[in-house]
């Protein structure tokens, strides 16, 4: 249905093949949050994977003793900005799920502050997702999800739950917070899966 808008020439022609459709490159790091930034004390922080069989827990010290890796990746927000070549450090979900057994194929990420987002398990494994604790070599800022956030960079960034606390296995792909409030159940930026 697209048609030309009179008088619009376009400001930039720096289209980069790494930019998904409808995205614009930014240099800063915008913030999208539905509510206040929660204060999370690493002394009380814990990370959990909850299955039908029980709960796996890591304290902050236990979590930081896990093998971590550097991640260089592009990130894409549903609000039309992308940031290329960002640097993170975190623990792969392959490591976290090493001893986890579940019959269920879907995951609800739950955060301090009550945020939720749903992701199929097979999109979190095989080097596709991390729990990140550093950005650009520094501890992750609270407004960007510190002390720890999920990082699932091949999906729109609302799936990379800030202040992540638990991954809960579930039998169906139930919608999380934004998925109930207008965003797509899956969220692939290359397919422009932005909205319902």
């Amino acid at each position: 249905m697209s048609f030309v808008t009179r008088g619009f020439g376009g400001g930039s022609r720096d289209r980069d093949d790494r930019l998904p459709p409808g995205q614009t490159l930014v240099q800063d790091f915008p913030v999208l949050s539905a509510g206040p930034t929660p204060e999370v004390d690493t002394g009380e922080w814990e990370f959990r994977i909850i299955t039908e069989a029980g709960t796996h827990r890591w304290s902050w010290d236990e979590f930081n003793a896990l093998p971590s890796e550097d991640i260089a990746t592009d990130i894409h927000c549903v609000t039309h900005w992308s940031k290329l070549g960002t640097s993170w450090r975190g623990v792969s979900l392959d490591t976290l799920f090493e001893n986890v057994e579940s019959q269920f194929d879907y995951v609800m990420a739950r955060s301090y502050g009550g945020y939720t987002t749903n992701v199929p398990l097979d999109e979190l494994l095989d080097g596709q997702a991390w729990v990140a604790t550093e950005f650009d070599g520094e501890p992750l800022d609270p407004e960007h999800g510190g002390p720890a956030r999920l990082l699932v960079p091949h999906l729109y960034f609302w799936k990379s739950a800030k202040w992540v606390r638990s991954l809960v296995m579930m039998p169906r792909d139930d919608p999380g917070f934004w998925e109930q409030n207008g965003y797509h159940l899956h969220g692939d930026p290359w397919q422009e899966e932005r909205y319902w």
Binding site: E52, M108, R110, S166, P175
Partner: peptide, 23 residues
């Protein structure tokens, strides 16, 4: 219904779910 909490299967088992329901 706008802010209904997500209905994941673990609601009873997970304290986070109770928190979300209160919200």
């Amino acid at each position: 219904g706008v802010a209904d909490a997500a209905g994941s299967a673990d609601a009873a088992a997970d304290p986070d779910a109770a928190e979300a329901a209160t919200a």
